[in-house]
Design a binder for these strands. Structure first.
Length: 553
DNA sequence: CCCGATACCTCA
DNA sequence: GTTGTGAGGTATCGGG
């Protein structure tokens, strides 16, 4: 047998059944961590096969055990079930529907504000009835029979590794300085008010807005109320979005917008958030690889993927430690160049700034135009300056643009599209899918059809970028482990992953090695997915004490 | 009183 | 001049 030995774990009758080399051994749950630790220490360690990483790995990590690799049957099942390159018959089994519905469980102690009762966990975990051995056999058969076998194997490995990264990030937690967070809030909002009262600065801004509009009971959170008040002073904005209000010439605008910005900060990431989500200097959201249809990760708990820029100074490395912050420049257009095999676009990307490369090729006049053109092509802009710029782009980079047009056209026909490694898009179900594209249709149907085309257009790029990024963090995880010694949180380790950006918490002495590892992993991910196609993935890498030291995007 | 839809803002 | 992807999250508001 080539590759690491597979060891399959299943919970049965209060214990764990460990299957290796076709033999079953029953182990009490409390002895599992020691067994895993022992096998991990032998050579390269096995490949653990289990129903769902969120049901196994947090307890192992809590016991100080790290695993090198696994197969996460839940994550792989979801990929294969939707892949256009997989024979669905080969995946069909008596418990297929149960695998479809298997949901991850929360790694944290449950609901914010208190530990979850034991029962909650069990209710959310019907995995006990699933036959992991049978599912593994079906998955292996389905992959083996697929024309995209090699790519699906890469995707399965990346997804499974992503599950490990996600659990480790929650386990270690994002370093979060409550005192710094509090200081930032006080600077913006004034001192923390007593329960039930608004912060001083909000009270003052609301007073200003109300008197400027002569509306003493105005609730600025109510769009209807706000529109009424504005109409009384002869202002007729079409909506109450900040960008719209900003166009108005009225003394109420400044306090209104400032009130909105600060009340949002207070409601979303204020003192209540701090109490709820930060414990012992760590913020521990749940990270969900493949949580988004495109394959991007989702997160749950405290809005981890939208940490406002103003609060990033509160993310500070421990004493003697550093944060290494790295983000990929223009990830999606680079992935587009690779998946469409557009050598011209790859050449434009070679200089490091893809947008400047597009300008230098003569496609458009300015960097701003290049950005409009590239983003417009990937999102499906038709009108306005974005739409015009896409035409210029199409003349110079026909392959890349055609790749997107084909994805959009397939979506408009109601067909699924696929990422580079074989993740399939969902199939639409709206009423428009019942008609031939050339038949007369209602405006609403036509709008939906085009909207779905924009989704599939974007899916091939966003999804392919997501699998590149998951491969990147999977490779990085391995390199970080080798840099240090001890448990996960004692070595350099990932603490946050945001689509195209990673934060690594590392002992200061290893920070430069980490910076090299982050670049090395990006290079290896590019070769792993795209072979010798000449696309590069340059990174901005910063080493500092705080997240904000990196400057941001 | 809960629930879903809507509006808006945050992030990539 | 025209805004085109994917999320999480909080608030309001109307319906059951």
């Amino acid at each position: 047998m080539t590759g690491p030995q597979q060891v399959l774990l299943q919970r049965r009758g209060g214990g764990v059944v460990v299957r290796a080399d076709g033999r079953d051994v029953q182990v009490p749950e409390e002895e599992l961590a020691d067994l895993v630790r022992r096998l991990e220490a032998e050579g390269a360690g096995p490949r653990w096969v289990w129903d769902d990483t969120t049901r196994w790995y947090p307890a192992l990590l809590a016991a100080g055990v790290r695993v090198r690799r696994c197969t996460d049957l839940r994550l792989v099942h979801r990929v294969l079930r939707r892949s256009t390159a997989v024979d669905r018959e080969l995946l069909a089994g008596p418990d297929t529907a149960a695998w479809d519905e298997l949901a991850p469980v929360s790694a944290s102690s449950g609901a914010p504000g208190g530990a979850a009762p034991e029962g909650l966990f069990e209710m959310a975990a019907p995995a006990g009835s699933l036959d992991a051995a049978a599912e593994l056999a079906r998955q292996e058969a389905a992959v083996a029979a697929s024309p995209l076998r090699g790519r699906l194997q890469l995707l399965a490995a990346a997804e499974s590794a992503a599950g490990l990264v996600a659990a480790e990030m929650t386990h270690a937690g994002l370093p979060w300085r409550a005192d710094v967070h509090d200081r930032l809030l006080v600077d913006e909002l004034g001192p923390q008010p007593p329960a039930g009262e608004q912060p001083r600065v909000l009270v003052h801004l609301l007073d200003q807005a109300r008197s400027a509009l002569d509306a003493p009971t105005l609730n600025p959170d109510s769009p209807a109320d706000l529109l009424r008040a504005l109409r009384r002073v002869r202002l007729e904005p079409p909506d109450t979005r900040s960008g719209t209000l900003q166009q108005l010439d009225h003394p109420a605008v400044v306090p209104l917008l400032e009130h909105r910005r600060l009340s949002r900060l207070h409601a979303a990431n204020g003192w209540r958030w701090l109490r709820e989500w930060v414990r012992d200097g760590r913020y521990r959201p749940d990270h969900l690889p493949g949580g988004v249809v495109s394959g991007r990760w989702a997160a749950q708990g405290g809005g981890a993927l939208s940490v406002p820029a103003v609060l990033r100074p509160a993310v500070v490395a421990d004493d003697g430690w550093r944060l290494v912050v790295a983000d990929v420049a223009q990830l999606e257009p680079r992935v587009l160049a690779a998946v469409s095999a557009d050598a011209d676009l790859a050449r434009a990307a070679a200089g490091g700034d893809l947008y400047q490369g597009v300008v230098d090729s003569g496609a458009v006049a300015t960097r701003a135009d290049a950005k409009l053109a590239v983003l417009g092509a990937m999102y499906g802009a038709t009108a306005g300056s974005g739409g015009r710029m896409v035409d210029h782009l199409a003349r110079r980079y026909p392959r890349a643009v055609e790749h997107l047009e084909l994805a959009a056209a397939a979506g408009e026909r109601g067909e699924a599209v696929s990422t580079w490694l074989g993740r399939g898009s969902p199939v639409p179900t709206g009423s428009w899918t019942q008609q031939a594209p050339d038949q007369p249709a209602s405006d609403a149907d036509l709008r939906e059809r085009r909207s779905w085309g924009r989704f599939t257009r974007n899916f091939v790029v966003q999804g392919s970028a997501a699998e590149w990024a998951s491969s990147w963090v999977a490779l990085l995880r391995e390199e970080l482990w080798r840099l240090g010694s001890g448990r996960v949180a004692e070595r350099p380790h990932l603490v946050l992953f945001l689509h195209d950006e990673v934060l690594v918490h590392t002992p200061a002495a290893l920070a430069d090695d980490v910076a090299l590892a982050v670049r090395g992993a990006a290079e290896r991910a590019g070769r792993l997915l795209y072979g010798d196609f000449p696309i590069t993935f340059p990174l901005d890498v910063h080493v500092g004490r705080a997240w904000s030291d990196a400057g941001g995007h």
